[in-house]
Nucleic acid binder design. Structure first.
Length: 203
DNA sequence: AAGACCAGCAACCGCTACGCC
DNA sequence: GGGCGTAGCGGTTGCTGGTCT
């Protein structure tokens, strides 16, 4: 199943009415998307092709970054965060679409065994793939393997390399990260006696 | 045929790091 | 050094379409 959450303009009005009335949209404080000054209400929810076009045009003119100025320079009623995410995950050039290849899946498993949930770092090793894609893939994989009663990592994966060396920089991770990753490892190893089958990379 | 359930994905939220003043 | 604004990351939520009953 692959669908793009891009709506046409007829849907636009509908989504605007739905999302703009949400409490968080009205609130817009703290670390969330904020609408400062103009009293404008920022839109949330799926992007339309028109909005995509505006954002692409903006990046062509001004380059990436300065996401909070998008709203000032264009008619886009989107916060900087939303623009950055849309660009990074869907609009930027050289993005790979479609399912992960077997090689990519294997690489993700190996990298996760070494790094834990460092999606952005993993994405650097998978050209054309986004951290969000990898994260979604992994979460789906976890669910699938849990259901099947399979270990998280296939036998032979060097989970024991998880001593936070080389690729994994302790300085950039915190205790919570490590603890969380160890929890996941325990989850995977708890079923280590279960025979590993073709689910590994086929799914 | 229709409703329930599930899988996959896009987008949002909260937090943190970093740079600037 | 502290406050503020911005960018980036990871976790979570919610929507959509497919499958099952």
């Amino acid at each position: 199943m692959s669908y793009t959450m891009v709506t046409d303009e007829s849907d636009d009005a509908m989504y605007s009415s739905i999302y703009n009335e949400s409490p968080s949209a009205a609130d817009n404080t703290g670390s969330g998307c904020t609408s400062r000054g103009k009293g404008s209400v920022l839109k949330k929810g799926p992007w339309t092709s028109t909005e995509d076009g505006i954002l692409i045009d903006y990046v062509k003119r001004h380059g990436e970054g300065n996401w909070n100025t998008v709203q000032k320079h264009t008619s886009l009623a989107r916060c900087g965060k939303s623009c950055r995410l849309r660009w990074a995950n869907h609009l930027r050039p050289n993005l790979k679409k479609g399912a992960f290849s077997k090689e990519e899946e294997q690489l993700i498993v190996e990298m996760h065994a070494r790094m834990g949930n460092k999606w952005a770092q993993m994405a650097e090793h998978l050209p054309g793939r986004t951290d969000n894609e990898i994260k979604n893939y992994w979460n789906t994989r976890i669910k699938r393997r849990q259901r099947a009663g399979l270990p998280l990592y296939p036998p032979g994966t060097h989970v024991e390399d998880l001593h936070w060396s080389q690729e994994y920089h302790p300085s950039t991770s915190n205790v919570t990260d490590r603890r969380r990753h160890q929890d996941i490892l325990q989850l995977g190893n708890s079923k280590a006696s279960v025979l590993f089958d073709d689910l590994t990379f086929a799914n």
